[in-house]
Amino acid sequence: MSSNLTLYVDSRFFSPYAMFAFVALTEKKIPFAIEKIDLVNNAHHTSGYQHLSLTGRVPTLAHGDFSVSESSAIIEYLDDAFPAPHHLAVLPASLRDRARARQLQAWLRSDLMPLREDRPTTVIFQQPSALPLSPSGQAAAQQLITVASSLINDAGDNLFGAWSIADTELALMLNRLVLNQDPVPPSLKTYVARQWQRPSVQAWIRQQG
């Protein structure tokens, strides 16, 4: 299948969802171009981008004459369009592990809003927040830590043995706390540090320069 791919991302490279799509493409070693969308000046609301994206959001992946937005849909499309063994699978191979990864991805996207409000992605990509966690933020942080601790062993290894995109997504959410020096168990700090040094993640961070 042709790899005529373009990934549309936010111009400041702050979107975690654009990051996940970028990491998936990079891990699969598929050539792709990047187009930056200026969200501050509402470039995502132009008719051209609305037509391309359907929902007017980033990221959007264009593959020839087809386009799809929403990072989870992009990730699953890439695994289907560019399958193993020729390309690395970014979702787990096992049926049950893949279901668990999708469960975790959905939960990270739909829950923990107080934590995302108290520790936005600017904490990760720009500078820490001087404000303490709110009571609801503390509750969300504890929920995140409880779930992550049940999935990650004391050595801080990958979730499912081999790396998957769920590792990047969980590590980013935990990094909202780690980089702000909020309390996080040592095993989770080890896990985050390992995931953050992955070359595909570092390649995204370098885009911000």
Rank of each mutant, 00 (worst) to 15 (best):
A89Y: 04
V90L: 07
L174D: 00
K28L: 13
W163C: 07
S2Y: 03
A84Q: 11
T121A: 03
L133M: 11
T26G: 04
L78R: 08
I152D: 11
L108E: 04
Q181F: 08
K36T: 09
S149T: 14
A18W: 00
T6L: 06
P31W: 02
L131N: 11
S72L: 06
P120N: 05
Q143E: 15
G64K: 05
L7K: 00
E27L: 09
T55F: 09
L54V: 00
S200T: 11
N41D: 03
I145Y: 03
A101W: 06
F14E: 12
S47I: 11
A73L: 11
Q138P: 09
I152Y: 14
L91F: 12
A140S: 14
R116L: 09
R102Y: 02
D79R: 08
A43N: 07
I37W: 01
R176E: 05
L95W: 06
W204F: 15
V58H: 01
Q195C: 15
S129N: 08
S3N: 12
Y77C: 02
R102D: 00
S2W: 04
Y17T: 01
R198Q: 15
W163Y: 15
S53L: 07
V9F: 03
V184H: 12
V184C: 14
A148N: 11
S94P: 06
F14R: 11
G56K: 04
L177Q: 00
S72G: 02
M19L: 09
A162N: 15
I74F: 05
P92N: 10
R206F: 07
R98P: 06
L133V: 14
S149C: 09
R206V: 07
S129D: 06
V201M: 13
L95M: 13
A43R: 04
N42K: 12
P83K: 12
F82C: 01
A162Y: 10
A166E: 13
F160E: 08
A203F: 10
P59I: 02
A106D: 09
P83N: 07
L188Y: 15
S69M: 02
E35W: 01
N158C: 14
G64M: 07
I145F: 04
D167T: 13
A33D: 14
A141E: 10
Q181H: 15
S72H: 10
D80H: 03
S129M: 10
S110T: 15
A33W: 03
P59Q: 08
A21Y: 03
A24M: 08
L177M: 04
Q142R: 15
Y17A: 00
H44L: 01
V178Y: 08
H44Y: 02
L39D: 12
S2E: 13
Q50C: 07
V123L: 10
P92R: 07
R102T: 01
I165F: 09
G209E: 11
R98G: 02
S136W: 06
S94Y: 03
L144I: 04
E35Y: 00
F22E: 01
S200Q: 10
Q50P: 05
D38A: 07
P83S: 05
Y49Q: 01
A84H: 07
L172T: 07
I34K: 09
Q143G: 10
L78V: 05
N42L: 08
K189G: 04
P186F: 02
A84Y: 09
S72E: 02
L133T: 07
L88Q: 14
P31R: 03
P120C: 05
